[in-house]
Amino acid sequence: MNAMSHTQADNAYNFGFLDEYAKKEVRRAILKAIAIPGYQVPYASREMPMGRGFGTGGLQLTLSLIGPDEVVKVIDQGSDDSVNAVNLRRFIEMTCPGVSTTTATTECTLIQSRHRIPELPLTAQQIIVLQVPYPDPLVVVEPSEDKRKIMHGEADYSRLLVKLYEDIVKFDEITISHRYPTRINGHYVIDPSPIPRWDVPKLNDSAALTLFGAGREKKIYAVPPHTIAEPLAFSDVPFRVEDFRDEQGRRRACARCGCVDSFLDEFVADSGSKTYQCSDSDWCDMQLQQVKPLQGKPA
């Protein structure tokens, strides 16, 4: 006998959409991924009722983790309100009765995200699941998966490092903007998904568990809490996050909330002038809430 599912009469789906066999497969892979930080554990990915680009890998993780008392937040490119994020949230609400969703980083227990890690530091009570289009950072230097597996096993990343070397030779700096290769616990190098460099340091010594799911490549990997995550760099050419200073060297601020220490999206108006705004919409809202009462007070 396998797990009795708790399908409900008014709900055509199994709770969490996936059948219990599929969940077990994903769950076993998750535990091995945590036990071997940064290693891409293969698993049998199930067909999901949405396009692959939609983040089915991340979704399968979320659905295997989720319980009825979960509070879920879905982010796409930093925003909770994009079509993608809304659709995913609705899918979760529909297939996981009892689960509540939120846009507030402070309230959620489980985050499914694409392209961003929230600005607000996550806590030990939270898990973040990142959707990954291309899980293997070695694919740019080695087409054969068998050979890549050997290179990963031996932590032989010299050919990847040569790419960085060549980058510095050509451009005087490392030009990778997203998917910055990051070494976990001194061994495996991961593709941290298309998050900006800004978010990469958040993986290091995080209080929360970070899980990565690649649906097409059928891989799961993890950065456990309190684990060393080092972006690849040279000792004399250190890793740097995005620079948001203007021509005068001043840190640009969010046009909406005034924040000067968040990752900013650039908007170009029809007139050609540029404005900047927090990419993390929930963070921006939080900053506004804190600032508003002050502004509201009469002098």
Binding site: S158, V162, V169
Partner: peptide, 10 residues
């Protein structure tokens, strides 16, 4: 130079 760097990086 990169060819040589590769061996040193190993």
């Amino acid at each position: 130079g990169g060819n040589i760097a590769e061996r040193l990086l190993m």
